[in-house]
Design a protein around this nucleic acid. Structure first.
Lengths: 241, 241
DNA sequence: GTCTATAGCTTGATAGAC
DNA sequence: GTCTATCAAGCTATAGAC
């Protein structure tokens, strides 16, 4: 036995990919390439790098294994390509959102809640409404964040700048906060975000069905309030400091 | 076992395993078995189930691959054995700790901070002072929690009761809190705990060396304050509810 | 670009001597 | 209990026809 659960029959392969019969033949069929990435994204997000074989990716994408190598070289190249594809969109949008909020926070100025709303809502929205690929990607990022063997350098390169920008803005809200405290506080938020985007289903079972992992709208609302209060407790200068 | 201060002289490979020449031959050499478990625990915690081969486990344990199968059957059996070995100790201690706290919370009665201290400190202490095996196990639990393909049923069976007991006691502190809110709040805490026990090192890099992932004493202190404030913000009945 | 075919290796697992 | 030896299956990756 090598596999523990069958590859999802889910069609991460090729929906909404019609209507482009005569297109850019110049440098490869983009649809095929994207289809392979979609399949790999799905599988990697569920089973991790080692838990997925090129053959499975090829089968789910409906192509031959050789084609996977043609496009992405070694297996690791495929993983990196999957990871990179949405990294820039993901993080640019978060940075834009917090910057937009910082520029125009509304009456009363910036709040932690407002800032987290800007920072957290995009990934949740992508996962909810961006199509299956984005949901898989969210789970993949979550898993990669918790296991730095892969994408360690990539995570840092693409994700850290957005986080640093967030922390800068938090400093404007809490000028007295110590840097160490801010980073440790963020670490707590990061863990919550990671586990939630993974949608592992454990909360469903634990709560006896009272909560659903997939209810990301609620998850985001809770996280914003939870984290804002947490930051205040940890970073605000108090009498016992 | 309530004492954590006694560092187990445990090692992943096989030193400090002398002094028992004539012992229980009845049902197998316990040292060999434990040595295999130690090696597997180490490797699984770093690379996951699929990222580890039986051969690597055997090599690190200093035995032959056939012996691994002799003791644990299929590869999945080895993984489960690793996971189960410390699960009971881990959770019994947490339950005992919160129960002890509930029985004698000191003047002023129970607080969220006191309860989380009782619930969170044990795993951190084991990881810090229980020897390398416990540190690997902590990382393994963290990883498994974030990826329920493995140990999903096991996690639920051994870990959920402790969590339910925690939530029961939180209810005593916050009787007005809604069940859904409590579970979602716990989910935030769970994510933070998971990421932290994994000691991925990402925080070190992100903070430019200001924080160290391995500083679990600090991590636990932060987490207690962060989570307590988070629970209050999310579960306490407020005007906007 | 896409496929067939296959090389070359590693894997999980077992049989059997000691 | 522990090891040697080995198998069948599966893997990544490539060469080459179309």
């Amino acid at each position: 036995m090598t596999k523990l659960d069958a590859p999802a029959p889910e069609s991460a392969s090729a929906p909404a990919r019609r209507g482009r019969p005569s297109k850019a033949r110049a440098q490869g069929n983009g649809d095929t390439r994207e289809g392979i990435l979609d399949a790999a994204e799905d599988l990697f997000s569920k089973h991790g790098f080692y838990g997925v074989t090129i053959r499975e990716v090829a089968r789910e994408a409906g192509v031959d294994t050789a084609l996977v190598h043609y496009y992405f070289g070694a297996k690791r190249g495929l993983f990196d390509a999957v990871f990179l594809r949405r990294a820039e969109v993901w993080n640019n949008e978060r940075v834009d959102a917090v910057n937009r909020y910082a520029r125009d926070p509304g009456p009363g100025g910036m709040t932690l809640e407002g800032l987290f709303e800007a920072f957290l809502r995009p990934p949740f929205q992508w996962s909810l409404k961006g199509g299956p690929g984005w949901k898989h990607y969210a789970a993949l990022v979550a898993q990669t964040n918790a296991n730095p063997t892969f994408g360690g350098e990539t995570m840092a390169r693409y994700f850290d700048p957005a986080i640093r920008r967030l922390i800068e803005l938090i400093k404007q809200i809490m000028p007295e906060a110590r840097e160490v405290d801010l980073y440790w506080a963020y670490h707590n938020l990061s863990g919550a975000l990671t586990l939630t985007l993974g949608e592992t289903g454990r909360l469903d079972r634990l709560s006896g069905g009272l909560c659903r992992s997939g209810d990301l709208e609620a998850a985001c609302d809770y996280m914003i309030r939870f984290a804002a209060a947490g930051f205040r407790a940890v970073c605000a200068p108090g009498p016992d400091r």
